[in-house]
Simulated assay, not measured.
Amino acid sequence: MRVISSPQVAEQAVLASLRDAFGDLSRSETPVPGQFVIELPGGGDVIHYPAVLPHAGVYAVKVSPYLPDPAGPAVVTAWTMLVSLSTGQPVALLDASGLTVERTAATTVLAADLLLPPDAATAAVIGYGRIGRAHARYLSHLRPGMTVRAFSPGGIDEVDDGVRAVASIHDAVTGADLVMLCTSAADDVLDPRTLPPGTVVTSISTNAPGAREIPPAAVPGLDVYVDARTSLQVASELAQAATAGWDPATVRGDLAGLVAGHAPRPSGERPVYFRSVGLGIEDAAVAWAACRNDDDTTKGLPQ
């Protein structure tokens, strides 16, 4: 087994691997596994993200420990292991800390590209940290002609090429066809109901209990899409909306359906909301793309 401590992967390879993974999922009758949390004695937890990639011939699991430290910041790591479905042997162990950023941004932007009309011209990134910058980077690959505006509550010291910093959320979202929420906020950042019908809003939020970026009360007034149906129990605002009477069966589609072309298009009558929580299949796809970038690791496996 090869240990890859600094995996490298190009954006186009990540996007292609995600399309393959969700394409596999669209043809499968097996639901995508969700997240599994193991509580640790004395506090902390380990989240497990399992997945199978049939086209790659591997099983994958990412483990992400959260280890509180009373004397300072908590320790947070992430590692993904790939196991051959032919031999049952480990193929690679990858440091997934950086890969998690890639899969988060790539998943959002892949969904947004499939939900947006061809003539979408302007995007807003709310929260221009490491993950927000990755969102803008992936968007430049799939929608290179879009204007991108960015806002962060604490200000933005520097922006990447093609991105313009603005002074407020209002300045960022006004006239935007796509609004990507990339914050670690514990409460509402934006109410999508204030945006014109057809505007695509994406949210990643965090795994913290109760964390959300939009109000649960807004959910019934949106065309809702998710990365997978299992996300309905994990995404705080969707779970709270369901408790208040919203019917999860009204979700219009998931990412597998969007990739395969089975999910219905947005109605055009309401803002559109795509919610991702981070799935093992996304981690597996990005790890596989990184492994394929390493010739020795994937020798003898399906290509």
Score class of each variant (00 low, 15 high):
G23W: 10
G23S: 09
G23Q: 13
D24Y: 01
D24T: 00
D24M: 02
D24L: 00
D24P: 01
L25G: 03
L25E: 10
L25R: 07
L25V: 01
L25S: 08
S26I: 07
S26T: 04
S26M: 06
S26G: 10
S26K: 10
R27V: 12
R27F: 05
R27I: 06
R27Q: 15
S28E: 05
E29N: 10
E29Q: 07
E29Y: 02
E29C: 00
E29M: 03
E29I: 04
T30S: 07
T30Q: 14
P31E: 05
P31N: 04
V32G: 08
V32C: 13
V32S: 12
V32E: 14
P33N: 06
G34K: 00
Q35G: 08
F36H: 07
V37P: 07
V37H: 12
V37N: 13
V37W: 12
V37L: 14
V37R: 14
I38R: 06
I38E: 14
I38A: 15
I38W: 01
E39H: 07
E39V: 07
E39D: 15
E39Y: 08
E39I: 04
E39K: 13
L40A: 11
L40G: 10
L40R: 13
L40C: 11
L40F: 14
P41T: 01
P41G: 03
P41E: 04
P41F: 00
P41K: 05
G42L: 04
G42F: 09
G42P: 11
G42W: 14
G42C: 09
G42T: 11
G43L: 11
G43C: 11
G43M: 09
G44Y: 01
G44W: 04
G44D: 02
G44V: 01
G44C: 05
D45L: 13
D45W: 11
V46E: 06
V46Q: 04
V46I: 15
V46S: 06
V46T: 12
I47E: 10
H48W: 12
H48Y: 14
H48E: 12
Y49S: 00
Y49D: 07
Y49H: 12
Y49F: 15
Y49I: 01
Y49M: 13
P50V: 12
P50D: 09
A51Q: 13
A51H: 08
A51V: 10
V52C: 07
L53P: 00
L53M: 09
L53K: 01
P54T: 04
H55R: 06
H55Q: 06
H55N: 13
H55M: 03
A56Q: 08
A56C: 04
A56V: 03
G57F: 01
G57E: 08
V58Y: 02
V58Q: 02
V58W: 02
V58D: 00
Y59V: 09
Y59C: 06
A60M: 10
A60C: 11
A60I: 07
A60D: 09
A60E: 08
V61T: 08
V61A: 00
V61S: 03
V61M: 09
K62F: 06
V63M: 10
V63R: 11
V63A: 12
V63I: 08
S64V: 07
S64K: 03
P65I: 04
P65E: 09
P65M: 02
P65F: 03
P65G: 05
P65L: 05
Y66M: 00
Y66C: 05
L67Y: 05
P68E: 12
P68D: 13
D69I: 07
D69T: 14
P70C: 04
A71G: 15
A71E: 14
A71W: 11
A71Y: 10
